[in-house]
Computed example of a mutant assay.
Amino acid sequence: MSHLSGKTIAFLVAAEGIERVELTDPWQAVTDAGATPVLLSPEEGEVQTFDHLDKAETRPVDKTVKSASVDDYDALVLPGGVANPDALRTDDDAVGFVRDFVASGKPVAAICHAPWTLIEADVLKGRTLTSWPSLQTDLRNAGATWVDKEVVVDGNLITSRNPDDLPAFNSQLLESIAHGAAAQESSTPA
């Protein structure tokens, strides 16, 4: 299955606190679909994933977010974990990258606590999304409508609540990338 061949997907994470499965499952899904995942982070080196509160594997950073360009990617994935998006939202380069990515119209997929970074990027007014339940008030205060659903699509935003939603999240991510690619191809003059 390589229907996303030639597509490059950015995964943006902080140095630690990433919920492992929320990074590795979508990563594997885009890889299996033929796309190339790229791990972005504010700092070079490795990032530390977690299985809830226990340290799991480390992953090498491919590129710093400061040196990344939205133009080089077909979609953005924001994995959760509590500490990960909390750290990202204090990094100006990460917040700016997310803001620009949402404005680009390309798919942006955020799961669990990851919408905290979307809140900081100030891109949620009038949008409908889901997240880990504890973010409801934060999201409403940012001008969004929060719903309790497995996966929510609002324009180019794809959101899910937790690791149990990963099958639906991954499926929607792949569909949105393929749809975005088809839309871009159809608008290219022959």
Rank of each mutant, 00 (worst) to 15 (best):
A181S: 15
D25H: 12
A29W: 04
E175G: 03
T8G: 01
A142C: 07
A114S: 14
T188H: 14
N170G: 12
Q184E: 15
A14E: 08
N141M: 07
E46D: 10
I158T: 15
R99V: 07
L173C: 06
S67W: 00
D62P: 02
S104A: 13
G126I: 13
L23D: 02
A56Y: 01
M1Y: 02
A142E: 11
F97M: 08
Q172C: 08
Q48P: 01
D154W: 08
D154M: 07
K149E: 15
H113W: 12
T36K: 15
G81H: 05
D86W: 09
F97I: 04
V38P: 04
K66F: 03
L166R: 05
T49V: 03
I111R: 07
S187R: 15
I18M: 13
N141I: 01
R89I: 10
P79L: 03
D165S: 13
L76G: 00
A142L: 08
D86F: 05
V82A: 04
P37D: 00
V13D: 06
T130H: 12
T31H: 01
G180M: 14
G96R: 09
V98D: 01
A178H: 08
E16M: 10
G45R: 02
T24D: 11
G34T: 10
F11G: 04
D91F: 05
P163Q: 06
K55H: 04
E16L: 06
T24I: 10
T117K: 02
S131R: 03
A110Y: 08
R140I: 13
V65Y: 07
Y73H: 08
V147D: 04
S5D: 13
W146P: 09
K66G: 04
A142R: 03
T64S: 10
N162K: 13
G96P: 09
T130D: 11
R59Q: 14
A121C: 11
D165A: 12
L124Q: 11
S41C: 13
T64A: 08
E120M: 13
Q172L: 11
Q172P: 00
V77I: 14
V151L: 12
D148M: 12
G105E: 12
L23F: 09
V153M: 07
A114H: 06
V21G: 00
A10I: 09
V95S: 06
F101P: 11
N141L: 13
T90G: 11
A29L: 12
R161E: 04
D71V: 11
D165R: 00
R59T: 03
T58Y: 02
R20H: 12
V95P: 05
A29T: 08
V61Y: 06
Q48T: 09
V65P: 07
T64F: 09
D71F: 03
S134T: 15
T145D: 14
A33M: 12
T117F: 01
P133D: 14
A144W: 03
L40N: 01
V70Q: 01
W27L: 04
E44N: 07
F101Y: 10
A182N: 14
L53I: 11
G105V: 14
C112R: 05
I18D: 02
L118V: 06
I177W: 00
S187I: 14
E22F: 00
G45D: 05
G45W: 07
A142H: 04
Q48Y: 01
R99F: 00
F97E: 03
D164N: 13
E57R: 10
S176A: 15
